[in-house]
Design a protein around this nucleic acid. Structure first.
Lengths: 114, 114
DNA sequence: CGGCTTATAAACCAAATGGTTGAGAGCGAG
DNA sequence: CTCGCTCTCAACCATTTGGTTTATAAGCCG
């Protein structure tokens, strides 16, 4: 129960079953049974996975007769993309100019380095 | 022990302490003690966190006298950025033109040609 | 050598995780 | 109303996780 949203999203995505569920939902809404069908586990287990995804804000569930329709909410994924982008300069060559800018900033800050 | 690399990376990032360690390492290499200093937990706990980060491929540790110097390896973050990008069209309006392009690609594939 | 510092290993513990089964609740169709 | 389908809740279980403390390895320096 770390409560902090970023951790919730990362934790939710740290499971292959849940990532597969998201992939399925990217193609459109689905009911719990539809989502559970491809997996070798019980529907109850999938229901638990959906709870995790919902608490992370990655899906929303709407009740519709006896069905619970699940829809993907991409907002947390956007947040996550921004988080990863903090580190883009570390691997992306095309980031060179901004990287140089940041190096300049750093040199200003700690002169006696190296 | 899910072994699958993507899950390892997500799981490693699902902890605020470990993300803070990565943020620190983005500014440059550091020893275990240096990394542990800001946190209210024992050095042993940090050592365990470093094991998790290392198994996820996010850091590499080199021995240097009695110190273990830790360096960030951005490769898994790049993989992760690519994973998230699968979903970019779901939230990014500017993705409209590329979205249309991908739809065209898909139409091509559905035909027997190629 | 002996002591200090750095870091890991091992044993232990409480809590969280991912799964199961069993028991309903909610709703539509016959 | 009752049957069947959809879905969740509750209890239980094994394993993992994040932390602790204690012990130990490895290396520098006086």
């Amino acid at each position: 129960m770390t409560a902090d949203p970023v951790s919730l999203v990362f934790a939710a995505l740290a499971d292959p079953t849940r990532r597969a569920i998201l992939a399925r939902l990217a193609a459109g809404e689905a009911t719990v049974n539809e989502l559970a069908a491809p997996f070798p586990v019980s529907v109850q287990a999938i229901s638990k996975h959906l709870n995790v995804l919902e608490r992370a804000g990655l899906i929303v569930r709407t009740r519709e007769a006896q069905w619970r329709r699940c829809r993907l909410d991409p907002a947390p994924l956007r947040t996550l993309a921004e988080w990863v982008d903090q580190y883009r300069r570390l691997w992306d060559d095309r980031y060179d100019t901004l990287d140089a800018y940041l190096r300049d900033l750093k040199e200003e800050k700690d002169e006696p380095a190296r």
